[in-house]
């Protein structure tokens, strides 16, 4: 179900917690699984649950609670834009509008070529960097003027 490399990473996460507390690693394990699979199909969630010795529904509770887990397929690049108030005051919403127009999609949609999915995000704890984008959950892009958005898209286009 998951690659040796992913399993190794999960084992490293398990080691952070006392014995008998493998479940503590579920958030990390789901993240690692999502990085490998692109999103979290139910069988992957079940695999992770079994790997950690917890009921599958408990792992599903976690996967459906934290909003960076994708329970439905997303494009190769998921772009999340913060539109919360502090960001909006510095153009967060405008940046999102610009992206929508550039990609021809709305929030929660994926471009027909499967390359980009656009999401509306909540506070990323980087309000001073507004407008802020998160690319594929792990790469934060700060001060995203339209020029920088264009640059980024061009770069991601070829990845």
């Amino acid at each position: 179900m998951l690659s040796q490399e992913s399993l190794q990473q999960i084992d490293q996460e398990i080691a952070k917690y006392p014995s008998g507390q493998k479940q503590s690693a579920v958030m990390a394990a789901l993240r690692i699984a999502q990085v490998e699979k692109g999103w979290l199909p139910k069988d992957v969630i079940e695999f992770v649950a079994n790997y950690l010795g917890m009921p599958p529904i408990a792992a599903y509770e976690v996967a459906s609670f934290y909003n960076m887990y994708d329970l439905t397929p997303v494009g190769r690049h998921k772009i999340t834009v913060c539109t919360n108030l502090p960001c909006a005051l510095s153009g967060g919403v405008n940046a999102a509008e610009y992206l929508k127009q550039k990609l021809g999609i709305d929030f929660n949609e994926t471009t027909p070529d499967g390359k980009f999915t656009l999401k509306e995000g909540e506070c990323m704890g980087a309000c001073g960097d507004a407008p802020v984008l998160l690319v594929n959950n792990h790469k934060m892009c700060s001060w995203m003027t339209t020029e920088k958005i264009d640059q980024w898209l061009a770069e991601l286009e070829n990845k």
């Binding site: 009921p55 599903y60 509770e61 459906s64 609670f65």
Partner: peptide, 10 residues
């Protein structure tokens, strides 16, 4: 004895 039900989403 077995968590068959859960509260998903938030």
């Amino acid at each position: 004895g077995l968590m068959e039900l859960g509260q998903a989403n938030r």
